[in-house]
Amino acid sequence: MSPIDLEQIPALADVEPVKSTKTPLRLDYEYTAGAASSRFLRAVKEKKLRGQRCPKCGKVYLPPRGACPTDGVPTTDEVELPHTGTVTTFCVVNVPFHGQQMEIPYVSANVLVDGADLPLFGLIQEMPAHDVRMGLRVEAVWKDDDELETSLENIKWWRPTGEPDADPSTYEGQM
């Protein structure tokens, strides 16, 4: 077979390329939270962090999605968790991203809530961004009671508690 060279085809020569066309694509979805997430979101509206425990391995998941991701069985027991946790890893964000409403720089982090075995994604505020570190102890800052919804946005951000940093062994493998 001879090689195909599009540049040698006369009909295609000297064509001004169309570099982009706009074809708007809009699809709307209505998600089903599912049984476990519904329980979780209902609790969040009451300013409670309610995880679920796997009956097989004992791990506590926050937020729960209905199944233990390690054992593939339903999480059956509900566990009420405190509003404090540890920063397991973090990132200082210096550029604005689409749809973002935050002032730059800000810190996003994985926060391992005390008693949970899966970190939550959240923002760290009320401290200089460059002071955020792994092991930092933080607590949730909630929206005002009259603004609470069935959403994790109820936690506005996490702020330092002032406690000494957590020992790395307490969050090893939870990054």
């Binding site: 973090f90 991203f97 935050m102 939550l120 792994m134």
Partner: peptide, 25 residues
């Protein structure tokens, strides 16, 4: 395509948090 996962932490932020966690150990 930008598609936020539904019903999880609706934090309006983007980041790549794992890196300090990768490097430290």
């Amino acid at each position: 395509c930008r598609s936020p996962p539904p019903l999880v932490a609706k934090v309006r932020a983007v980041s790549s948090p794992p890196h300090p966690g990768v490097h430290a150990p």
